[in-house]
Design a binder for these strands. Structure first.
Lengths: 256, 256
DNA sequence: CGAGGGATTGAGATTCATCAATCTATGTGG
DNA sequence: CCACATAGATTGATGAATCTCAATCCCTCG
């Protein structure tokens, strides 16, 4: 089986070299010594551009690559049969996507871009080779997995809550904090936010109609507001409190 | 900080030696060569007994140990402030519990035994030493992490569904299949099942009252029945269908 | 035998999904 | 530049699903 190939467009010139990657410290390759970055780069197939709302890979299919997100956002999801989706996670720059227990097996989730993206591609069948050749990468992969678990657990807490306003508060508060963490920004009260209300529903297990009403309530309460692809949070502590989200747990996402 | 110490009772004699562990192939130490099992054992503090419904460790506290489950079941959960819990995962024999991104940091979840248990304890502060000294353990840890992710994602799908009967079907079907997988049993139609209805509710985001009513419906439909700490599933395929659970995904939990 | 945790049942209130219509912003082709 | 198509956002009405509160029952254990 040749594997599914998304509509990736290889960047023809001026690809970022791993040794000059500005976000290296938050990727799988954090900690790799300068002189070993050429090794990393030798495993990289290249950098690819992708438009918003395109499939990156599909559940149950094979994929040739693992991707490290260089730019943009995407959603990892599973399909539910009745046409619905469960969004597992929103992946941001630095995240590794497509890694799973049995690396050669068909994927057990799908990914779709939420913005235009740039992805660094690493061939699956050579990935364990890379792990074996550089202990830092292996160690860091373990850290990324553990971070994933933490995110997944928080997400579980969000959709396990029994009322919609708490689900959405927690979901958005976490993204808000992750965003600041990843982009290393001083705390502002607004972030870029490309998700539609349907997607917020797919992530939290609610219908888009109810998401809409709940967002209106949150906006009326002056706790958060989404408009024009921007999430505004006047007071993140209040939002965390409503979602019963421990903001400190976000610090464990970026390690050491 | 000395760290939280649960009421563990060290087994005084006839502790199982790692080299003779009957469930080694499904633990962190699958794949470790015979001659290296003494190394593993040298890192093990000992085997401990624990009664049902006891705390193993608590969120936000430090724990001296990581545990590999030798016998029994436990629940991993987060507390929600209002006295409620979100159960993240049911851990079964062979599972490693207490591992997280920053291994020395306070834990970000709690664990409570659901049955009497026997745990193998490994000191946290020496754990990375063990990983560095045996590549099989490191590789296997990665596999276990990936398996955890898979479980967590399935759990997300369960509680993301919009009706209770599907949530509970998926949750129980997964446990049913995991149980058979772990104990390597031929497919029977009943398994031991120690969870209370409150705990099923904590796992699926429902109240115990509604769990009760939904279980009655499922029983009336002859799809599954819980009584006397036994889960009976006349036709697992039907149950999976109702929960839209892909039974094949269970095979990815045990690797290679 | 009594105590207590878990299971069960009922009634009423709340939250949420569904269906359907409208509105708005954006982009596309002529 | 306009007409149109389309995706997303919004609103209303209705019924279903679920929660809450409360009472009762049942089983186990000391």
């Amino acid at each position: 089986m040749p594997g599914y190939t998304p509509e990736l467009i290889e960047i023809s010139k001026n690809q970022t070299r791993c040794s000059e990657c500005p976000i290296r410290h938050q990727t799988l390759f954090q900690g790799v010594k300068k002189e070993d970055l050429n090794l990393v780069q030798s495993y990289r197939t290249g950098q690819y551009r992708l438009k918003a709302r395109q499939e990156i890979f599909l559940e149950a299919q094979n994929s040739q690559y693992l991707f490290s997100i260089y730019h943009g956002w995407c959603a990892i999801y599973k399909s539910l049969g009745n046409g619905k989706k469960q969004i597992i996670k929103i992946a941001l720059p630095g995240d590794l996507i497509g890694f799973q227990s049995n690396i050669e097996a068909p994927l057990n989730y799908s990914a779709i871009s939420l913005t235009d993206m740039v992805l660094c591609a690493f061939p699956r069948n050579e990935f364990t080779g890379l792990l074996n050749r550089n202990a830092f990468v292996l160690k860091r992969l373990m850290e990324l997995n553990a971070r994933e678990m933490n995110l997944c657990q928080n997400h579980l807490m969000a959709i396990g809550k029994n009322i919609a306003i708490e689900k959405i508060s927690l979901f958005c508060a976490e993204l808000f904090l992750r965003f600041h963490n990843i982009y290393q920004l001083p705390l502002t009260n607004r972030i870029f936010f490309p998700l539609t209300q349907v997607e917020i529903g797919d992530a939290t297990g609610l219908t888009c109609v109810h998401v809409n009403r709940t967002l209106k309530t949150l906006s009326d309460m002056n706790l958060m507001d989404i408009s024009a692809r921007t999430l505004t949070v006047p007071d993140i502590d209040k939002l965390c409190k409503l979602g019963q989200f421990d903001a400190k747990s976000i610090h464990t996402y970026t390690l050491y």
